[in-house]
C-alpha cells in the first residue's frame, strides 16, 4: 500500500458505480473550452470529411438533418476529473457519414469552428463508436456545449469530442491537435488514465 492522506475519508463509496481511475461523479454538466464560444448560423453551417487524396464530402445542416439519426446514451469522462453518466444525445453515426467515403487513411484530425483541433485514429470513429450530435437531453445542443453540433466519442476523454465540429481531415500520418500539442495524451483512454503525455 502506498501513500495515505491523513484524515481523508472521501465520499461514501458507491459500489454500484464503476468509474475510470481518478474520476469523480457529477450530476451537472460542466463546460471546458480554451477560448470564446463560436456562434455558427445554421444556414452557413457545413460539415466536411476531407480524404487523404484531396476529395471532400460535404453536408449542409439540412442534409445532416435528413440523415438517419441515432440516440446514444453514454457516459462522459473529462480529463479534468469529472464523469457524468447516462447522458442522452441525438445525432448521426460517423458510420453513416463515412458510408460513401473511400479512404485507407489511419488517422483523423478533427477541426472545429473557432480553430480547435483534436486527433484520433480513424478506427475510433467507426463501428458505432462516434457520432455528430445536435441534441442533448431532448433539447438542441447549446453553444457552450458545442452546438449546433459536436463530435461525440465517449470512449475517449471528452476533449476528443470536439465542440463546434466543422470537419474531419483524413491523414496518412498522425497530426497532434490542440491539447495533444499542449502536453495532453495523444490517445486519451480514460480507463487507462491516459491524461498527459507519458501516462
Amino acid at each position: 500500500m502506498g501513500f495515505i492522506s491523513r484524515g481523508f475519508h472521501g465520499r461514501p463509496r458507491d459500489e454500484g458505480v464503476k468509474l475510470p481511475p481518478g474520476q469523480y461523479l457529477v450530476h451537472d454538466f460542466p463546460v471546458l473550452s480554451a477560448g470564446p464560444t463560436p456562434r455558427v448560423p445554421l444556414d452557413r453551417w457545413e460539415f466536411a470529411i476531407d480524404t487523404e487524396d484531396g476529395r471532400t464530402h460535404r453536408w449542409s445542416w439540412r442534409e445532416l438533418m435528413a440523415l438517419p439519426s441515432e440516440t446514444p446514451t453514454v457516459d462522459l469522462h473529462c480529463v479534468t476529473k469529472w464523469s457524468k453518466l447516462g447522458t442522452a444525445w441525438k445525432g448521426v453515426s460517423l458510420d453513416t457519414l463515412f458510408a460513401d467515403v473511400e479512404s485507407s487513411a489511419e488517422y483523423a484530425l478533427v477541426y472545429s469552428y473557432g480553430g480547435y483541433t483534436t486527433n484520433l485514429p480513424v478506427e475510433d470513429l467507426l463501428d458505432g463508436k462516434a457520432w455528430i450530435v445536435y441534441e442533448f437531453d431532448g433539447e438542441e445542443l447549446a453553444a457552450a456545449h458545442g452546438g449546433p453540433a459536436r463530435l461525440l466519442v465517449p470512449h475517449l476523454y471528452l476533449w476528443k469530442s470536439a465542440k463546434w465540429v466543422q470537419g474531419i481531415r483524413l491523414l496518412n500520418e498522425d497530426w497532434p491537435g490542440f491539447w495533444e500539442t499542449a502536453g495532453y495524451h495523444n490517445y486519451g483512454d480514460p480507463w487507462r488514465e491516459q491524461r498527459y503525455q507519458g501516462d
Binding site: 469523480y24 477560448g35 470564446p36 473557432g114
Partner: peptide, 24 residues
C-alpha cells in the same frame, strides 16, 4: 466576458479562457 470582448473587437485567438464550476 468572452462574448463582450469579442463584441468589443478583440481577436478570438487573443482571448484565452479557463472555466470552472463548483462541481464536485
Amino acid at each position: 466576458a468572452a462574448d463582450i470582448l469579442l463584441a468589443m473587437g478583440h481577436d478570438a485567438r487573443a482571448i484565452k479562457t479557463e472555466r470552472f464550476g463548483p462541481t464536485g
